[in-house]
Design a protein around this nucleic acid. Structure first.
Length: 833
DNA sequence: GCGGGCTTGTTACC
DNA sequence: ACCGGTAACAAGCCCGC
């Protein structure tokens, strides 16, 4: 039978002791089908140099005898072949060892301790990844497939087990040409879900309701009956019936994706535990399996056949670092990307909910699913894109950290280079890598505080990645021994001179392009493509996509320096960073030589004054610098700015790095590093600072700002500032008990814990400083919870929030803000200075 | 018990 | 633990006086 097929979810099972995949996806009629397939299972034994043919024949005999016995299977060697391969860019002879079960390859590997074998590789990819690499049935791509129906005795248990109507055996497949399908666009069926409970712990509270939201599908299922006019509310008898009804709707809808927000850690584990407590089955998987929760920090929840997606995870890795929102709560994220918020509803235990309040609770519950669904629709193209680029199933691609994404991408593309994959480092190696200490990083130009006019800013496009590509830097292209001399060589690509342990050395890399640098090119190009897309059509989504590939592209260097990476290389990381410093300083020099004054620079950027030159003259300069850059390296114009402000460090006499504010001719303001952008400062200090920065940038002087600050200070002293503007938000970065220094946010967290609130790693602790500490001088003794009664501590907010946030800004204009206010309000000030 | 230097911890920039 | 180095800064900690 010939069909079209798009693979979505991958799972595997053992049959007759052998691995099989079952792939869930859709066909051209949009029917959900399951494909069963197998693939050759093998690993590699790389032989030492100069092993003779005779020795190989003997070795093969020996290898064939290896087997692994586990409690439910015996894994044997099926055949052994000899191949010429590349390993880390070097030619090697390797045995391709075929075995019956992938899960035992690592045990097989440890039994191959013959002295002719140098290295054992390719046993630690995971079966799904191995399968995709081997058969090239990539996720989310349309294929033309040849299938056969299962015969009577084939996989009998599967047929009975699967909810999917069609289960087919795959014979062959090839990528479908775009033309052959009217619409190759994959229109997924998806449901977002959200639960409401009486507790954060399933042991302590029931699930009250579950909402589901999809295209033309709205449902709130609940056993808590209150008057409502919402026709989507479905009442059921009890919690058991609630779970069963939820299951029924999911089964009927047949979604490809079941989507939640933080559902990996909360919703699905909660449901699973409650089902267990209620002694009912919850066979949501298409193979009637329960959700599989991989415990860990953070946990992941997989449902066989239905891709369970947790948007929180994806937002966190792909977008978070470029987002405006200060938390990644559904409310903040929805508000940033959708311009919509959750329905306000104060959490109450169900026993405290009045009859007429249930209706709001239903609507609240539905809205959460609604928001999650809308976010899903916005993010799906990006998740699909990641999945396709990295060639990992969307379940993984949407959860993987950046190093995993880069690594997945590399592993899935090694075959083009005839490369044997590197293995994962073990714990000992990871530890040793970490102990080597830090690598010297980028260069940051020390600015001189001041308000500058007419500025230009250049920055390098994906600097680290373009260095890797242009200079062919990687573990595999490094010439060993690596601690080579500083003599320049025409045979190799040299790194800049690097000082290591007091010695100046240069690393050499081959001129022949290595697979790692070559592979980065695609990610690099994608980044360019999406940036262009954003520039042509700027909106929050094109921006997010552009940034998602920006982070992916920018992670290549971090990956190389990451102790857990297969292709880790300290030498490569050092070389990349040496180039980063060199290029930045060279660029600074070139701009200086052109007659511009350098104001600032950080890693890959330079800010300079125009010195009366026209923008087109500056663009010519940029062109000239670019003409001198190698490979894909590219310096671009970040922008022209009408004014820019740099300040001194607090209590210091020199300019502060990583803190500046600039404004374009059109009034677009760019603020970096200032308290304005730091969430651990109270809103009052941040908003005030933001306001005066803008005023100064717009007007070119401090006059208005001064008036403004005086007014705010007056209000603060008169207690006219509302407390919510004084809340300080700080995140717990580790378990409460592990803190050596007990800072205010830790005290506040302890308080919250005592009140029975769930606090732990990642919780954002909200507190304010009040007049409660008695004689204590410690700030922590005055930390009050957000909703705790008390008066705010005027002195603290003046001295520790307001003043610091504006002090250095006024210093630029020679104004001592303390004195100014002091002169005006002599008597009050004595109290706080 | 006070002050200064050091350490711990968080958040930002790139 | 899950990309890394550079930097600013607050608050606590610690030690000498």
């Amino acid at each position: 039978m010939t069909k079209k097929f798009i693979p979505i979810d991958y799972d595997y099972f053992d049959y007759d002791g052998k691995n099989h995949v079952k792939i869930f996806g859709r066909d051209e009629t949009n029917e959900q089908i399951c494909i069963i397939d197998t693939c050759p299972i093998f690993m590699w034994a790389i032989l030492k140099e100069n092993v003779t043919k005779k020795q190989i024949i003997e070795l093969i005999k020996e290898v064939k005898e290896v087997y692994v016995q586990t409690k439910d299977r015996t894994t044997t060697i099926e055949k052994v072949e000899t191949h010429e391969k590349n390993y880390s860019g070097k030619k090697v002879v390797a045995l391709k060892i075929f075995a019956t079960n992938y899960k035992d390859l690592s045990s097989v590997a440890s039994k191959l301790d013959n002295e002719l074998i140098d290295k054992r590789r390719g046993y630690d990819l995971g079966f799904t990844t191995h399968y995709i690499i081997e058969k090239k049935l990539n996720p989310l791509v349309w294929y033309d497939i040849e299938t056969t129906e299962l015969e009577e005795d084939d996989y009998d248990f599967i047929k009975n087990e699967l909810k999917t109507e069609k289960v087919l055996k795959l014979n062959s497949h090839r990528p479908s040409t775009v033309d052959s399908i009217p619409s190759t666009d994959f229109t997924s069926r998806s449901l977002a879900y959200d639960i409401e409970t009486d507790s954060l712990k399933p042991e302590l509270g029931a699930i009250l309701m579950i909402s589901l939201y999809g295209k033309d599908f709205k449902k709130v299922i609940t056993w808590k009956k209150g008057p409502t006019t919402q026709d989507y509310v479905e009442f059921v008898e009890d919690e058991k019936a609630l779970l069963k009804t939820f299951l029924k709707h999911v089964e009927e809808y047949k979604p490809d994706f079941l989507v939640g927000y933080n559902s990996d850690a909360f919703d699905m584990p909660y449901i699973k535990t409650r089902a267990k407590m209620l002694k009912i089955k919850f066979p949501i998987g298409l193979d009637k399996s329960e959700p599989k929760i991989r415990k860990g920090i953070p946990p992941t929840t997989k449902i066989t056949g239905i891709t369970h997606l947790d948007l929180y995870k994806f937002v966190k890795t792909a977008y978070a670092q470029y987002m405006q929102s200060e938390t990644l709560s559904l409310n903040d994220v929805a508000s940033e990307f959708l311009g919509e918020k959750k329905i306000p509803f104060v959490f109450k235990h169900s026993k405290d909910i009045k009859e007429n309040e249930w209706d709001l609770y239903y609507r609240y519950n539905l809205k959460d699913s609604d928001l999650a669904f809308q976010l899903f629709e916005k993010f799906l193209p990006d998740m699909i894109e990641f999945s396709k680029v990295v060639k990992e199933p969307i379940f993984e691609a949407s959860r993987n950290g950046l190093s995993k994404q880069i690594e997945g991408y590399i592993l899935h593309n090694l075959e083009k280079f005839n490369e044997i994959p590197e293995r994962k480092p073990n714990q000992k190696e990871t530890g040793a890598r970490m102990q080597q200490g830090q690598t010297q990083g980028a260069f940051v130009f020390k600015p001189t505080a001041g308000l500058y006019e007419d500025l230009g800013m250049f920055d390098f496009t994906s600097m680290h990645t373009s260095i890797i590509i242009s200079h062919n830097i990687s573990k595999g292209t490094l010439i060993e021994p690596s601690t080579v001399n500083s003599q320049p060589s025409t045979d190799y690509n040299d790194s800049p001179e690097i000082k290591i342990d007091g010695k100046n050395i240069k690393y050499h890399f081959t001129k022949e392009p290595g697979f790692f640098p070559l592979l980065l090119q695609e990610i690099f190009d994608k980044r360019k493509q999406f940036k262009k897309e954003y520039n042509e059509n700027p909106n929050p989504m094109t921006k997010a996509r552009s940034n998602a590939f920006k982070v992916l592209s920018a992670s290549a260097h971090g990956y190389i320096a990451f102790s857990g990476a297969r292709y880790y290389s300290k030498e490569a990381a050092e070389s990349i960073l040496a180039f980063v410093r060199q290029y930045n300083q060279e660029t600074i020099q070139k701009i200086k030589d052109a007659g511009q004054k350098i104001i600032y620079g950080d890693t890959d950027s330079v800010v300079f004054t125009l010195e009366g030159k026209s923008e087109s003259t500056i663009k010519e300069l940029l062109k000239k610098i670019n003409s001198e850059l190698p490979g894909v390296m590219n310096l671009e114009l970040e922008g022209f700015f009408k004014r820019g402000l740099w300040v001194n460090t607090r209590g210091g006499e020199t300019g502060a790095k990583k803190k500046y504010a600039m404004i374009t001719e059109n009034g677009i303001v760019k603020i970096r590093g200032f308290e304005t952008v730091r969430r651990d400062w109270c809103e009052l200090a941040r908003k005030t600072q933001d306001h005066i920065l803008r005023l100064i940038l717009k007007q070119g002087n401090e006059k208005e700002s001064l008036k403004y600050v005086k007014e705010i200070i007056k209000q603060l002293k008169e207690r006219k500032i509302s407390k919510d503007k004084l809340i300080i938000r700080t995140q717990l970065k580790k378990p409460i008990t592990e803190y050596k220094a007990i800072s205010p946010h830790v005290t506040a967290a302890i308080k919250m814990q005592k009140q029975g609130m769930a606090v732990g790693i990642g919780s954002l602790i909200e507190y304010y400083i009040g007049n409660t500490g008695g004689s204590s001088k410690l700030v922590r003794d005055k930390a009050l919870l957000k909703n705790e009664d008390g008066e705010y501590d005027i002195t603290y907010y003046l001295k520790k929030q307001m003043l610091p946030s504006v002090d250095q800004i006024f210093q630029v204009f020679g104004i001592d803000i303390k004195e100014v206010i002091d002169g005006q309000k002599q008597e009050n000030l004595k109290k706080w200075f």
